[in-house]
Write a protein that binds this DNA or RNA. Structure first.
Lengths: 233, 233
DNA sequence: ATGTATAACTTGTACGTACAAGTTAAATTT
DNA sequence: AAATTTAACTTGTACGTACAAGTTATACAT
């Protein structure tokens, strides 16, 4: 294995396992040089990659600090979730993780391999000021997640749980967006009039474990809180 | 100015002006080294940035080639536009660029500076198989775009025109997504039943020219063609 | 004619050095 | 005590060298 990749993976694993927590500074570049008997060129290459992948942020003169890595809704975030900190945000489980079946509600094609495995499912309702904003339904194979049904979510986050307890990271995602009429069942849960437009987001999360793909269907009431994203650079 | 930035900007400008066209190979790293009397470290840093910003792609053993840079809908693309090449895709101007006024239809706040400048506007309808899929309405200040109203679009693309003729690049964007009922006017243009859900995408494009921000409002019929995007790494 | 080695290119990794530039805390001066 | 300088850290830029690894056309051998 290449040296810079070894360093990078080593640091990444320590970040995932919580050896370095969010906000912590990693050892300085020269520290790592002496510790692993390599040159700064190599260390910097590793750090550059961690930066690109969103694990750290750098500041000249200070150091490299572990960053909160946001992969919550893929590239999309609901306005008011991360930004509006002052808001009263709640997440309620409508269905805790259970054994379920692969359903046609999943709009991305479920891989043949996944179909042969058991299907786990959970469903959450995200609310801002007690107003339901996003209904989130998730399916995934439980094959590579031993004891998942007995596991408590790390800090209430599914992805943090995957990272911390199973060393699984999201490395990509595909999304499809549709504007639809709210069906009766959803309208009720979302406290919307039946037939009101809802933003339907289908996501397929790809992870660093080829056996784990996560399929999510999100239904958003965008009346008060539009779904937003931005990128720069 | 830093050396690697100078090299990077120089190459970028040549790509924008068409000195290096899409598919062309840039001079090799050692070529650039001798030509500008710098070391490969510096050249590689410049190339790395061009890679990150999407201007080039690299292949070990072959070289660095100019890439088609897609910033069409920000991060979102309509499924069937880029992928489904075999499809019958058309773009029709409903309104060629004209002098207009800043309107409240723009959902992102228009900057105070922009408000004092003249407002240019154009409107296009994107169709797949003669079915209207996206109605695109664009506003921007004409202050830094001399003779824009007399200018032909480069390859039918607004952004290519900005790049080629004005050396202006999109460096970021913010988006907000909403599911709405189609108003009468839109429903008619889009050949939809009035009240049908439409996906409304508001975009603010930020460019490398601080005086130019582009405001776009897109209205998408997602019934047959959902809006999609994906990212990896 | 056809397959094979070679040579000349390309980018990728890794070594080592030096100094610039930003940050911070301790030492020094006022 | 307070302001200022200094020193010791951090990351950033740039120098130069060497070889690995992938690509391709040409020369060579079969």
């Amino acid at each position: 294995m290449l040296k810079y990749q070894a360093i990078k993976e080593g640091l990444k694993k320590q970040i995932q396992q919580g050896v370095f927590k969010v906000g912590d500074y990693l050892p300085s570049e020269s520290d790592l040089c002496t510790r692993f008997s390599i040159t700064r060129t190599t260390v910097r290459k590793a750090m550059e990659e961690l930066l690109k992948e969103g694990y750290i942020e750098k500041q000249q003169g200070k150091g490299s600090r572990v960053r909160e890595r946001q992969t919550s809704l893929g590239l999309l975030t609901v306005k008011g979730f991360s930004e509006a900190v002052g808001q009263n945000i709640q997440t309620e489980f409508l269905q805790k993780p259970v054994l379920s079946v692969w359903t046609s509600e999943i709009l991305f094609p479920v891989s043949d391999h996944d179909k042969t495995e058991q299907c786990l499912f959970f469903e959450r309702l995200r609310m801002v000021d007690n107003l339901p904003v996003v209904l989130e339904r998730n399916w995934f194979s439980g094959a590579v997640l031993p004891d998942f049904l007995k596991t408590q979510f790390v800090e209430g986050s599914f992805f943090k749980t995957l990272s911390r307890k199973y060393l699984i990271e999201v490395i990509g995602s595909s999304q499809e967006l549709r504007a639809e009429r709210a069906e009766n069942h959803f309208a009720e849960v979302m406290q919307m009039e039946s037939g009101t437009p809802v933003l339907h987001i289908s996501i397929r999360f790809v992870t660093n474990n080829p056996q784990l793909t996560i399929y999510s269907e999100l239904y958003c009431n965008t009346k008060k809180y539009p779904v937003g994203n931005s990128y720069f650079l």
